[in-house]
Design a protein around this nucleic acid. Structure first.
Length: 649
RNA sequence: GCCUUCGUAGCUCAGUGGUAGAGCACUUCCUUGGUAAGGAAGAGGUCGGCAGUUCAAUCCUGCUCGAAGGCUCCA
């Protein structure tokens, strides 16, 4: 007999060789019906894996991440079987589960899979699923596996086999499809009740641009048809929040082919939103000892040769601009730091000047591959809420922590709760893409990790994500479609001060080299606003709303009073408009609601006589009658409630 | 940049090898209405651009520009 320990701490006795399915059956029939795979001593395995000795077991269902992954992994095999049936001669590379579903990379043998074919693939998958074919695990010596794929003429799987050790090879077979696979899998295909092919895309073989492009087919499956339907509804809702769509609907920004792709044009309302955000951060920065600077949009090529950007990115940048007479070369500014280094150097610096915190809403231009451009999140011209802190090495940690506070303050004030703090370090394998000494890197990497830890941040470490001159602490968020983007970033840099020979005179009257901290709480105004739009679905807090109020006269008779009210509100820095159209009040309200105006002021005969206003709140309705003073007090309280002063929270 | 798909009015979208249509928005007129769409009329498009096939192209073909979803890249 063996002891099986369950997650609730209880244990049960089974015959040697019992399987996780036996365990499930011993608990309840319902569980046995729903269990997909099991974690045996922490490893996910098939349900029919014999257990030979005492073990801890966790039964995995659709509600467990690992259960879902197993389900989708098996679904990838099912899709492969369907694809092989429909497209003769296809060859398969890899088909893993992903966050929402799974994909399979295939060589289609010259055939094209288009959207019209999706239904056909889905139907075939469901037809095969109904056959209730078991996912059968077949251990195999490597030699046999190689022979199998040689006969099949499958160079992809042979490539995959090369990296595997003998003795670990397993195949999985369901129906007519056999695949090289480590597993585990769900018991049989009948668990898959709903299937949807989401899209097809090209993907480089092994992720290398120089390799052939395979066809990646994305799909998702569910154990119930209803869950698929619900998922599709969620997707539709996410699309409605897409900043590109809302940006258009709310007149925030636009693009013009003629201006150029990836170059956003900010419309008045979008510009207002930006301005509010900039002022908000400016205020907090003043309180934290930053000084605002302004630098030009171009800089001489020599500046970037010094900084190292030319060597690293020169070929992949907008190319230098030349003056007609002298042939001088300038680069569109891709970064603000070199300019700020020159400000530091503009005069002799003393340790008494440190930390010197130079801030700038600096617009930068970077060549991005055309296929990478995406709304406001990936553009070719954008404005960083940049600042560089020049400090002594013993100030680094303290300054770094202050910046973390600032970033958290910004995120909190804007209701960004769903972010992850990522420590971006050097690649462990390839160090050729970084500049500077190992010693400096190690100092910088440990400073970041220490500061993040002391601030209690819940961090994940990503190797290979550092900038070429230093490690970063990046604040990552997801957009409406689940894509991950970097917003706030804090970077420790020992390299630029070296390259620019930055110096200050210490208390010891000796020259010392400062350390730089690069930081941007928003990251870029463009990307931040994109995420803000998606997070709020365009329902901005009152203090940010481009238009805070709509004054809606019931008829032309009350126009004059409406104008007076509006003027009084403008005096109090409340912004908005008067709807002068000869429309009925219902129509004016509807349009204000659609345009997501937070507050509506209704002016009619009653209001005019009483010298009051009627207030209506978007999404809530009538709030009753206010004097103008009462309303101003109400609005100001609403405006201030979301933005505590930095340092007071 | 690469792969797949897409491109008709300001927006959302119909449509056809014989030089185009709807709804909303816009303009004008009527209506002066109390908390999510009042009515009528009008204007608006070299059907992304350039070539080609054809008696004839918005529709077919090629190139090009732009967009979408991925891949790769991201100071």
């Amino acid at each position: 007999m063996i002891n099986i320990l369950l997650p609730d701490g209880s244990s049960r006795q089974f015959e040697k060789g019992a399987t996780p399915m036996d365990v499930a059956l011993s608990i309840s029939e319902g569980l046995a019906r729903n269990v997909l795979a099991a974690k045996i001593n922490g490893q996910v395995r098939d349900l029919n894996t014999p257990i030979e000795e005492d073990a801890s077991i966790q039964l995995l269902t659709w509600n467990d991440t690992d259960g879902k992954s197993t389900f989708w992994h098996s679904s990838a095999h099912l899709m492969a079987e369907a694809l092989e049936a429909i497209y003769p001669g296809v060859k398969f590379w890899v088909g893993p589960p992903v966050e929402n579903g799974f994909y399979y990379d295939i060589d289609t043998n010259g055939q094209v899979i288009s959207h019209e074919d999706f239904k056909k693939i889905e139907d075939k998958m469901l037809e095969l699923a109904r056959q209730k074919n078991a996912f059968e695990r077949i251990p195999m010596p490597k030699g046999d596996a190689i022979r199998y794929f040689e006969e099949k003429g499958d160079e992809y799987k042979l490539d995959l086999l090369q990296g595997l050790e003998d003795g670990q090879i397993t195949f999985y077979k369901q129906g007519n499809f056999t695949d090289l696979c480590r597993g585990p899998h769900i018991p049989n295909t009948s668990y898959i009740k709903a299937a949807k092919i989401m899209n097809v895309a090209g993907a480089y073989f092994k992720g290398d641009q120089n390799n052939k492009v395979l066809t990646r087919v994305y799909g998702i499956t569910f154990p119930k048809q209803k869950e698929l339907e619900e998922y599709l509804v969620v997707l539709e809702e996410a699309k409605r929040r897409d900043h590109r769509k809302l940006g258009q609907e709310l007149d925030l920004f636009t693009f013009s082919d003629k201006v150029g792709k990836g170059l956003p044009l900010w419309l008045p309302k979008g510009a207002m939103l930006r301005e509010r955000l900039e002022n908000f951060l400016r205020k907090a920065q003043v309180r934290s000892g930053y000084q605002q600077v302004v630098t030009p949009h171009i800089g001489s090529k020599a500046l970037y040769e010094t900084s190292g950007h030319w060597e690293k990115y020169g070929a992949d940048s907008f190319q230098p601009i030349r003056t007609p007479e002298e042939g001088e070369e300038f680069m569109l500014k891709p970064m603000n730091c070199p300019h700020h280094c020159e400000i530091f150097k503009a005069r002799p610096r003393s340790y008494r000047d440190l930390p010197l915190r130079l801030a700038e809403f600096g617009t930068v231009y970077r060549y991005e591959q055309s296929g990478e451009l995406h709304g406001l999140t990936r553009v070719r011209g954008f404005t960083q809420d940049d600042a560089h802190i020049f400090c002594s090495s013993d100030q680094v940690e303290d300054e770094f922590k202050k910046v973390i506070d600032l970033v958290l303050y910004v995120f909190k004030s804007l209701g960004f709760e769903d972010y992850s703090a990522q420590i971006s370090l050097r690649s462990r394998e390839d160090r050729s893409k970084y500049i500077g000494s190992d010693e400096d890197w190690e100092k910088a990497e440990s400073a970041i990790q220490k500061a993040a830890k002391e601030k209690g941040l819940n961090t994940v470490i990503e190797y290979g994500e550092a900038a070429f001159y230093g490690p970063k602490l990046d604040f990552m968020v997801k957009d409406a479609l689940g894509r991950k983007w970097q917003l706030g970033t804090i970077q420790v840099d020992y390299q630029l001060p070296n390259r620019f020979s930055l110096e200050y005179v210490g208390a010891d009257n000796q020259k010392h080299r400062p350390v730089m901290i690069h930081r941007a709480p928003f990251g870029s105004m463009e990307r931040f606003i994109a995420i803000l739009i998606e997070n709020t679905a365009g329902n901005f807090p009152l203090w940010l709303s481009p238009e805070q109020i709509a004054v809606l006269p019931i008829s032309e008779k009350y126009e004059e009073y409406a104008n007076d009210v509006f003027l009084a509100l403008q005096e109090n820095d409340i912004r908005g408009y008067v709807d002068h159209r000869a429309e009925k009040i219902g129509r004016k309200i509807r349009d204000a609601e659609i345009n997501k105006i937070p507050l509506m002021i209704i002016i009619g005969e009653k209001e005019q006589e009483e010298g009051k206003i009627s207030l209506r709140k978007k999404g809530e309705g009538d709030l009753g009658s206010f004097t103008i003073d009462e309303f101003v007090a109400y609005a100001q309280q609403e405006i201030n409630k979301n933005i505590p002063k930095f340092g007071n929270n």
